[in-house]
Design a protein around this nucleic acid. Sequence first.
DNA 1: GGTCAATACGAACGCTGTTCTTAGTGAAAC
DNA 2: GTTTCACTAAGAACAGCGTTCGTATTGACC
Lengths: 238, 238
Amino acid sequence: MSPTPEQRRTARRQFGAVPADAGLRRGPSRGAKKPITVDLILDTAFDIVAREGFEALTMRRVATALETGPSSLYAHVVNKEDLDELLIGRLCAEIDLPEPDPAAWREQIISVCGRLREQYLRFPGISRAALASAPTNTDTLRVGEGMFAILLAGGIEPQTAAWAVDALNLYVTAHSLEVSLVGGDGWVAGRDELMSRLTGLPDSFPNTRRYAAELTSGSTADRFTFTLNLMLDGLNRP
Amino acid sequence: MSPTPEQRRTARRQFGAVPADAGLRRGPSRGAKKPITVDLILDTAFDIVAREGFEALTMRRVATALETGPSSLYAHVVNKEDLDELLIGRLCAEIDLPEPDPAAWREQIISVCGRLREQYLRFPGISRAALASAPTNTDTLRVGEGMFAILLAGGIEPQTAAWAVDALNLYVTAHSLEVSLVGGDGWVAGRDELMSRLTGLPDSFPNTRRYAAELTSGSTADRFTFTLNLMLDGLNRP
DNA sequence: GGTCAATACGAACGCTGTTCTTAGTGAAAC
DNA sequence: GTTTCACTAAGAACAGCGTTCGTATTGACC
């Protein structure tokens, strides 16, 4: 008996390795069309997100891209939620983790977080799925383990490191989501407008008005590394 | 001419004060039903979110709670997005900001962030709207100004303080959203299960397995103040 | 009293995720 | 070689969503 999507999902939650079913196909092969597989679904899903954003990723959209009906997907995927989780999994799987170097733990953490951000931004809005996704996913846990190892090698106490990993992960995800929502370069384009709006505020906003330049300065990447450094600075000052 | 919802929205984005139209009513008053106003809509919306979560907040749900059709709302509100923004606005308006005290800037920041978290968690999932909402909302900017003032009084450099306000706001929102999604006390209930899942991981997760206790320890509030302190520690070490 | 602008609201459109049902296929069993 | 069977593919449909259109109803103003 080959596994139902539900079984695959619970298996995924526990081990991460999947029986795979390799080329074994049963069912109609209408014409020369490629058979639908989970990997094929994920490929087209990533393609859609990269092109049109995560909001445009619907079951129907994926189905029509595969030249089929929506119901055909439910033989391979439990849910939209399940699809999202699979996407995040594969996205995290492409993050390569360095061998922990006690002397360079700071740079290593920043590098991993930066790579994570990069991946999230390549697929605009997908970080929303990362926020909702259960943290028990194996691939998600893998990058967690990687960051954890780096912090431990850096001499951070286990309890502190454990919570820091969560905090860093959460911040990276939230930052990426915010950047995706605002629209990336749309931020830079609307900076002048934002500035004038801040300076045009009532008198009850003295600091916001005076430091409008500081408030609107910097690229999203600048702000990202700033906050990362903020947290890392807080880590080694016991 | 009384303003259309669009006009109210743009007015709101710029000033925040609204002409109000006070009891002036034109239109059918079927029976003794209360006339629909923006405030009434917001009241019932908050009620729904508090009871059933942000996911359950739909236009139709609000309309039926008001014993009317969905289209009746669009005379007072531009969008669902606009409704969300209004909710966040009113939520932020209930945050009272302390007079900046240079000696207690740390405690003051933590207090404001804690109050913000409290408000977000009272209405589960509403922080999602805060993430999407444009940061040009007057009420949102008000608490930004408040936190900014506290940091400046604490001697933080303007540029650093400006970016820190954004980082803190983003973290508070993301944390609240995560807590809402996981389900609050559901976290505590599933801790044992999570622990056993972590310890049951493959050998490629040595640190996660060894420190599973540390990883799953602490309440959400503990982790919240931990991360806040992390960022604040990073602030005053130039 | 008549005019007009603003509100209220039923009906409908296009979209979503999901399920039910039916048709079709290859591998295995006899 | 035929039959059985587990599985996939896919059409049709359902409930629910945000939103718009058209229309009826009302109060204030001339």
